[in-house]
Design a protein around this nucleic acid. Structure first.
Length: 342
DNA sequence: GGGCTAACCTAATCAATAA
DNA sequence: TTATTGATTAGGTTAGCCC
């Protein structure tokens, strides 16, 4: 475990969801089911969830915990047995990964959903229950999937060295750090777990990033802001604040653009998120939700600060993305790849 | 206070999908 | 074919509930 126990303790307090106490009949049923099949597939879990009124994800957790418990019991029993037999009692609870059919349906997270999640992740690598619920509602993704996404993201981007900030791209001059991708790469001092492909796959030779400011508490996206529960700073993040480095996932938000060799985009209203070409072409994505009027979207103004502190619930990311598409198209139309200028 | 256990974490890995 | 990323697991920890 990466965190020391104190940090972890505080962390879990902040992310702890209210504990459910299952009643005896529910426990009895679960135990009975466990006897029949300690590794229920998704369809089975779903069906059982319906039958006893416990969310499928909770059933999954219960089974996981119960397998652990059974292993411990078996281990205790095996220790108590005659050791001269020299046989290790095989755990009936171990299983290789589930076959394809048993796995959860593949959840395709769209670009706009991913953006919402990434924003939340940039602010806080650990979900509290309130934020999780809000994100679920906002994105239409189930809570357990969101939790999974955050777990995978943390795994994908292991905690930067404790001197590094997850939210630091906007820390540069004028909130626009000028590091190139190569410089970013050098700054990535922590071995990248799942992201070991990152540097070679994302960066291609001869390309230079033109980083755009990311959403942060201070800048860029007036309406995308932080609600109090999300503002809670995790211990690790508190340590990280104020450092000038960049997280890998931050880089994911940036489009590699051929170097403009002196071309200055500084007077262009730089978007908070540079989409790729596909994004520019794909306008229909995820616009099913009602559109929110973005008051003062381009005009940060004192009297709008209240609006700027709207919580995630009220932010219409698809709308923002749609607006961005327009900006992107305009930029694309103006940009001449041969000259690298507008 | 201690045991039990739901809920959370990381790490390793598999597998679906996109490029 | 390879890279990316969502899903599942084990192993471990934390903290709420109950006796």
């Amino acid at each position: 475990m990466d965190l020391n126990s104190t940090e972890n303790s505080i962390l879990q307090k902040e992310t702890w969801q209210g504990r459910i106490v299952y009643n005896q009949s529910q426990k009895d049923i679960l135990q009975e089911w466990f006897k029949q099949n300690p590794y229920p597939d998704r369809a089975t879990r779903k069906q059982w969830a319906k039958e006893i009124g416990i969310p499928e994800a909770k059933i999954q957790i219960w089974f996981k915990n119960h397998r652990s418990k059974q292993r411990q019991l078996e281990f205790g029993r095996s220790l108590g047995k005659d050791e001269t037999q020299g046989q290790h009692h095989h755990q009936p609870w171990t299983q290789e990964y589930l076959p394809k059919a048993a796995r959860q349906d593949w959840t395709s997270i769209t670009r706009s959903q991913s953006h919402v999640l990434l924003q939340a992740f940039e602010r806080n690598r650990f979900l509290d229950i309130t934020t999780r619920k809000k994100l679920a509602k906002k994105t239409g993704i189930q809570e357990p999937r969101i939790q999974m996404w955050f777990q995978n993201q943390r795994s994908l981007y292991p905690q930067q060295s404790r001197n590094e900030s997850v939210n630091s791209l906007a820390d540069g001059p004028n909130g626009r750090p000028g590091l190139t991708a190569q410089q970013h790469q050098i700054n990535l001092s922590t071995p990248l777990g799942r992201s070991h492909h990152f540097a070679s796959s994302i960066l291609s030779a001869g390309q230079t990033f033109l980083p755009a400011p990311l959403p942060s508490y201070e800048s860029s996206v007036p309406c995308v802001s932080q609600e109090p529960s999300v503002m809670m700073v995790q211990p690790m993040q508190a340590m990280q604040r104020g450092e000038n480095s960049v997280s890998p996932q931050t880089l994911r938000n940036h489009l590699p653009i051929p170097s403009t060799s002196g071309g200055d985009l500084s007077d262009t209203p730089t978007p908070f998120w540079l989409p790729n070409q596909e994004k520019c072409q794909n306008h229909e994505e995820q616009t099913g939700t009602g559109v929110l009027q973005l008051k003062g979207y381009c005009e940060p103004h004192p009297e709008h600060q209240e609006d700027q502190l709207q919580d995630l619930q009220q932010v219409d990311i698809p709308y923002i993305l749609q607006r961005w598409d327009e900006v992107c198209q305009a930029l694309t139309a103006k940009w001449d790849p041969r000259e690298g200028t507008h």
